[in-house]
Amino acid sequence: MPTDTPLAPGNRRAWTNGVLAALTGIFALMAGLFLANLWGRPSRPANPLVDEAFLDTAPWRQSYADLARAKEDLSDFDCYACHEKNEPPPIRYDADLNIIIPEEHETIKMGHGSHQRNNHCFNCHNESNLLVLHTRDGRELSFAESSVLCGSCHGPTYGDWEAGAHGRISGYWDRSRGPAHRLDCVNCHNPHAPRIPSRTPAPPPSPLRGPRTDPSREPTH
């Protein structure tokens, strides 16, 4: 085909044969290299499995109703095991008007409402009957009905909760197939300090591409 090559016919043939022989060799070598599997398989460091605690769906507080249903120990709610009947417990404040929690109730941290305004035990507890709660307008409620008490101040939120728009829910959205389990206010909120405490987040994503986040890395803020 080419005409501008300076090679003589015999030389040209020798070149052709040479190239063909070389190709035979190269192809054979390639076949060997392909079979030798020099590249290996891709490998990436394995992602650790997530701590199962992050998969837990249980509410993190138990209400009086939960305990009663589960027939658990309710002695914490038996106020008159310690308190005297017909004798309202005294409430003391320090110089800054912060309530002084007695040693017997040291597990209670007060933090309801801003500016320490809602710091009076008997805003919710009934001083003449510690076994019940009461609203500001004088309705008496059992511990199992605590959500109604919350609603007596937090009207809009209570409305949302009743409609299912506030608070946790689980089970069946289709009530014809099964029940939905609605949680009470106190399943999530500590009535004495209702703000939901902060928590450690689950591990960040570490997708296929991009810088990988090392789970052991110090948290950054």
Binding site: R199, P201, P204, P205, T213, P219, T220
Partner: peptide, 9 residues
């Protein structure tokens, strides 16, 4: 996307 705060929020 990859915040690793000790505590949230």
């Amino acid at each position: 996307h990859k915040y690793t705060a000790d505590q949230v929020p």
